[in-house]
Write a protein that binds this DNA or RNA. Sequence first.
RNA 1: GCUCCCAUCGUCUAGGGGUUAGGACACGAGCUUUUCAAGCUUGUAACACGGGUUCGAUUCCCGUUGGGAGUACCA
Length: 480
Amino acid sequence: MNSVRVRFAPSPTGYLHVGGLRTALYNFLLAKHHGGSFIVRIEDTDQSRKVEGAIENLIESLRWAGVEFDEGPGKEGKYGPYIQSQRLKIYHDHVQRLLEKGEAYYCFCTSERLDQLRKKQAEAKEATIYDRHCRTIPFDEATKRAASGEQHTVRMKIPLDGELTFNDLIRGKVTIAYKILDDQVILKSDGFPTYHLAVVVDDHLMEISHVIRGEEWLPSTPKHVLLYKAFGWELPQFAHLPLLLNPDKSKLSKRQGDVAVEDYRTKGYLKEALINFVAFLGWNPGDEREIFPLADLIKEFSIEHINKSGSVFNIEKLNWLNQQHMKLKNENDLLALVKPLLDERGWTSFSDEYRKQVIALMKERVVVLSDFVTECAYFYEDPATYDEKAKAKNWTADSLNYLQKLKEKFEALNVFDAASIEAALRSAAEEFHVGAGKLIHPLRLAISGVGHGPSLFHMMEVLGKETSARRIRLALERLH
RNA sequence: GCUCCCAUCGUCUAGGGGUUAGGACACGAGCUUUUCAAGCUUGUAACACGGGUUCGAUUCCCGUUGGGAGUACCA
């Protein structure tokens, strides 16, 4: 395969959807696998849906995920501009060519007439399709009317009968009869092209080799093929990706959970995990490996291993993958990611060394980055409350005695590390003739305020002698 | 309604004319352990249905059912 050029072509309606991320990723992976180019093109031909800042947002989400493009907005190559609203003249010229070739025609129908037509067809249980009312207007007459300023659109001429077959890299041959195809509007009355025209013109001009996009485009691909033919252009390869689904199997949507890439970012998911997860929704390497950093995805990716059916976006698996990728990171990497979160929380007065010790203790038991804040509060401030359940379970009448004794033992310690803390505690347990658990659980509650967490002795070592002593004293005053 | 696409454990999937239908997540049990995780061992769980083709079909073909998408001067 020489010169792979692929593109991700989102419309700027707000944020990057995780489904969009997967589409972008597959395009990116194919390009990088073959040493080709990945292009981002903004499809903003619908003026009414424009959202301020959406382009920047999209690009930032891609950048965060590590899906870097070779050409696109802000990174102009020789095929730009990469924003469709800046390419209007190009579309107009191409529409003109179609008009002159007799492959398209002016349409003067009002949207009221169109609405009525559709309504009637629906009532008669017929396919709702344009009745080609304007297709027979002589070209000269239509040109004159359009030139005189009469409101109009331009539609493509679909052959009246016959059928069209095209090849899809994922689905094989797909055939559709012309008679169910609409004479699609390609130029709107506001002068903007519709998606169908713009996508074909741009993909050709930008020398796109593979059109990889969501399955929702499959039914309109014949129109695009027809347009390529009308222009006399060579077809790209098509690959229509299976959809990402809600748990109820409908197309993944906002109301059933988070769909924006930035949501997962702020929740504390690692980009490596999100990428890995989303890559495996519809693709797999063909063996049983599951943990794939981006570099490995690039190495192994192939269109042949993409499957046909939609996949449910299952957050449980994402959580697991996030843990796995978390473990792959060392304390320095994690510190860089967690530090801003700690600072934001106001825990600014701690050394990097200290924070790294906390991370080391906790990394095996957190799921997302934000857990380094929410699950680690007691490393940064004294507990204000004590978990009721843990207290009910492990705090007994004797606990105060035990803690008092432990306090004295710890004070006598010259070296306050996990081993000496443990030794001190075990000797105390012996003196009381009870199991170590009788001391450990209340002590954990006193130190951390909760009933679970990392090794108590290591936790106290990290906290230090002074803090540990203070917390025992505090607990002695507050627990009874 | 019409058109197109799809169909293996609850979920993500491997496989493919002859397999004890494999793995992962989740769930259950056990081990380990000061707790919680992690880890290890282990268990439950699937070829939608009906016809063909074939010595043999989960796999190939047709149909049914189910699901999804499209059906805009939205993308």
